[in-house]
Design a protein around this nucleic acid. Structure first.
Lengths: 333, 333
DNA sequence: ATGAAAGCGCTAACAA
DNA sequence: TTGTTAGCGCTTTCAT
């Protein structure tokens, strides 16, 4: 059995309250007594029990993080951002994967409540009324991350996806493209891909061009490869915007396999700026999102909520930009 | 304020002990009373407070997971495996990044103890005496994951890295390679890359060939690209084994940039089998490691320790195999 | 089959 | 500046 605050008190010849005071620096303690207490702590190699502390103080210094799937490159980076900021503010994170399944998400919010987390960072491809209701019942400070709440009821951190797509269309038109297609899934990533698709469609129509949609079964490489191969007459298109980088690489390879040269015959632009883009040949132009910052900003936001610091807005919009690489650049050296 | 076990007891007209019994199924309760209790629970939408439970039972149903960096593709996949199995056994995970820094790792084990985690899954590029000492002091069930303990003092889950490298050398020789180089870093991933390098060197020497080492500053793409460009006279080599997939892709691109064709002029083989390998052109042959299983097996192992189930061995060795793709295959269709 | 009561290790009034 | 004393919400003997 290891030492308790009581043992330390006895060893130092003071009351447990005093020990608690030097531990938490919650009241002034005479230098000399403080020294005695610290010596006792060292001697017994005492460490406070966070569970007992949590029960007594009703604060666990732990936040829940619910993501669809950490093993996705994007998510992993976001989680890293969350954890870094959490540590900075002395929090730990309990990480849960929901696979984007509503019931699991709901259950998780419940078990996170049971664990008495101080708050929650929540990521999901689409926000439903059920989510909102669950959040309200949970009575927990929650920050949405890369999860759009159209009605802005829950604090959130996002980029402007539709705008990003419009920028991509403009970018491609500047480079001479006039038949621009969009490749993305209509199932899994609903809202997110939806916003990107909307921006694309709007920009294309406004330019007097014809939208071309390539629908994939999911957002991964294999789905992308299949969709481009089966749905696209490559001759009819001179540029491609993908809903994420993995799909962009799939499109790139499908085009190359069909004998098309990128960027000479067709321009390709991805979404997210994961590491993958640099590892493609040609390297992929992509709409860069601040992945790490997504997490970092969301967690920072949450700490503000937890400390009742003032927040200027309930929906943070992060900047995006187009990171240009070879896949949209003619005349390489 | 939400309901406590006491409220439920009053509502059901029983004692809190009885409520606890139906909650935990820890003793027989008459069907009728059980029903009353369950109704009361539903009516008050009562949820047990896990912190109080943890304090009373000394079990938190939480395990700590310490990894160098979740944002690395490999780690993220492992973490996913850990979390899946943890959930299966009703555990949650507290995730921490150490960046492989010893002091941080030591501190983390300490704070995980404070959080009263029931156990720990630990990953680190190299295991030092300080680690062992920390683990012993912590008095926690610990399972090492992809972390070699040469003296087998701590339960661990690994593959046979040296053997895998030997297999790779044999594989390349079968395909006619006779000047095989190894590319990896000598700094960060010490032990792990070290084992892989040893296996390579041993196999090459035994075959009467000359080892060629390309040392990188780190294990990432940029370091790999630089190292191959500056250190390798590509003419002198007809095959390359990389310490990980990212380095393999870097090598691939460096070779291509130098006008060499893969696999025609030079064979390349990676290590780990991350998603990257499929997204390279040509697709990369790689030494496949069961990334997800790494985590899953380690966590399963830990649950056995936590439930005092018998374990047949303290060091699990997972199988590896060579996943062949275009980068070592001549005469593509 | 059920209840009473004593902790688990700490924080936080309230006194002194 | 320090000590005393209640809890926090639960599990777990020990009785009944």
């Amino acid at each position: 059995m290891s030492a308790t605050i009581y043992d330390v008190a006895r060893e130092a010849g003071v009351s447990m309250a005093t020990v608690s005071r030097v531990l938490n620096d919650t009241a002034v303690v005479k230098e000399e007594t403080k020294k005695r207490v610290q010596d006792a702590i060292a001697k017994l190699s005492y460490r406070p029990n966070a569970v007992a502390r949590g029960l007594a103080s009703k604060k666990t210094k732990t936040v829940g993080v619910i993501v669809p799937d950490v093993s996705a490159a994007f998510m992993a980076e976001v989680v890293r951002g969350i954890e870094d900021v959490a540590r900075m503010y002395n929090y730990h994170i309990i990480l849960c994967n929901s696979d984007g399944m509503l019931q699991r998400e709901i259950d998780l919010v419940g078990t996170m409540w049971e664990k008495q987390v101080d708050g929650l960072v929540f990521m999901s491809p689409a926000l439903l009324p059920e989510h909102i209701q669950t959040f309200e019942e949970a009575q927990l400070p929650i920050v949405l991350c890369r999860t759009d709440d159209p009605e802005r009821r829950i604090p959130s951190v996002n980029i402007d996806n539709a705008c990003a797509s419009r920028d991509a269309v403009a970018f491609l038109r500047e480079r001479g493209a006039s038949r621009i297609a969009f490749i993305g899934d209509r199932t899994g990533d609903q809202t997110l891909t939806g916003l990107r698709r909307e921006g694309y469609e709007e920009a294309v129509l406004r330019a007097g061009l014809v939208p071309v949609f390539i629908d994939t079964a999911a957002g991964d490489y294999a789905s992308g490869l299949l969709a481009v191969r089966t749905q696209l007459s490559i001759e009819t298109v001179d540029a491609l915007i993908a809903a994420n980088d993995e799909l962009a690489i799939a499109a790139l390879h499908a085009c190359q396999d069909a004998g098309k040269r990128v960027p000479d015959d067709i321009l390709i632009i991805g979404f997210d700026n994961t590491k993958l883009t640099q590892m493609a040949r040609p390297a992929l132009t992509t709409i860069a999102q601040p992945m790490y910052d997504y997490g970092a900003v969301a967690m920072r936001f949450l700490t503000k909520l937890l400390r009742d610091e003032p927040v200027d807005t309930y929906s943070v919009v992060l900047p995006h930009h187009i990171a240009e690489a070879a896949s949209t650049r003619f005349h390489l050296a």
